[in-house]
Structure formats: structure tokens, C-alpha cells
Amino acid sequence: MSFKNSRAERSTITRDTVDLERGTDNIYESIVMLSKRANQINVDLKEELTQKLQEFASTTDNLEEIFENREQIEISRFYERLPKPTAMAIDEFENGELSIRAIEG
């Protein structure tokens, strides 16, 4: 999934619980599914950000260099402005991009 093209809300909005339970007919299953997907998105975002910031890793402790690295600052700001993983998961759910698999055991 491309996080850069996410259509998710960037701020908190009120959601109707009836809409959230439509896909599973159970609000609790929907919430569990959304939380698991949000965790997956969060891990992916964190890995991507870490990879990009490792390019700027320095072996020296030069304080001036740390504060003047504009590219690193811009990358960090970009990720800070992205919608929250929970909002991305809800957007995927509302657009029918998520499905639940029942595991019988």
C-alpha cells in the first residue's frame, strides 16, 4: 500500500458505529480487525521511515551536522503529516479493501 496516496482523514472525526459493523455484523470483530490492520500499517510506516533515516546516520557526533540536515527534517515532517494508521485502516475498511478471515480451531 502506498501511504503517500492515502485518502484517510488527517484529523479526528466522529464515526457511526453502525457503519463500522456493516462488514462483519459485529462491532467487536470490526474493531479487532481495524486494530490489527492499524498495527500492520504502523509497522510498515516505521520500517520505511527507519530505512530512509538510516541514509543520514552519522558515525561522528557533530552537533552542527545534526541540526542542519534539512533533508532528514523534511522526511520526518512528511511522516508526521501522514494520517494516523488507525485512520488509514478505517479508510481501507470503508472502501471495502479489508476482509476478515475466520479461523476455526
Rank of each mutant, 00 (worst) to 15 (best):
L20P: 02
L20F: 11
L20Y: 05
L20M: 08
E21R: 03
G23H: 05
G23A: 06
T24V: 06
T24M: 11
T24H: 04
T24D: 10
T24N: 09
T24A: 10
T24S: 14
D25C: 04
N26V: 14
N26L: 11
I27H: 12
I27G: 09
Y28W: 14
Y28E: 15
Y28N: 10
Y28S: 15
E29W: 03
S30L: 06
I31C: 06
I31Y: 11
I31A: 11
I31F: 12
I31G: 00
V32H: 08
V32Y: 09
M33I: 15
M33Q: 02
M33W: 02
L34H: 02
L34M: 06
L34V: 10
S35I: 06
S35V: 08
S35T: 09
K36P: 01
K36I: 04
K36N: 09
R37H: 08
R37P: 03
R37D: 07
A38V: 04
A38L: 09
N39Q: 12
N39E: 08
Q40N: 08
I41F: 00
I41T: 10
N42C: 04
N42P: 01
N42D: 10
V43D: 10
D44W: 01
D44M: 05
D44Y: 03
L45R: 12
L45G: 08
K46W: 06
K46V: 01
K46L: 04
K46S: 15
K46R: 13
E47L: 04
E47N: 15
E48I: 02
T50V: 10
T50L: 09
Q51V: 07
Q51P: 01
K52A: 03
L53T: 00
L53F: 03
L53H: 01
L53K: 00
F56A: 03
A57Y: 07
A57R: 11
A57P: 00
S58D: 05
T59G: 15
T60Q: 14
T60K: 14
D61P: 01
N62C: 13
N62I: 09
L63I: 11
E64W: 15
E64N: 11
E64S: 14
E65K: 14
E65C: 07
I66Q: 12
F67H: 07
F67N: 04
F67T: 12
E68V: 04
N69W: 05
R70H: 09
R70N: 11
R70P: 01
R70E: 11
E71H: 09
E71F: 07
E71Y: 09
Q72E: 12
Q72A: 15
I73E: 14
I73K: 14
I73W: 10
E74M: 15
E74D: 14
E74I: 12
I75N: 02
I75Y: 00
I75W: 00
I75C: 03
S76Q: 14
S76Y: 04
S76M: 13
R77P: 01
F78R: 12
F78V: 05
Y79N: 10
Y79H: 06
R81K: 12
R81E: 14
R81T: 14
P83R: 04
P83I: 06
P83C: 08
P83H: 08
K84W: 03
P85E: 03
T86R: 05
T86S: 09
A87V: 03
M88V: 11
A89V: 04
I90D: 00
I90E: 00
I90Y: 00
E92R: 01
E92D: 15
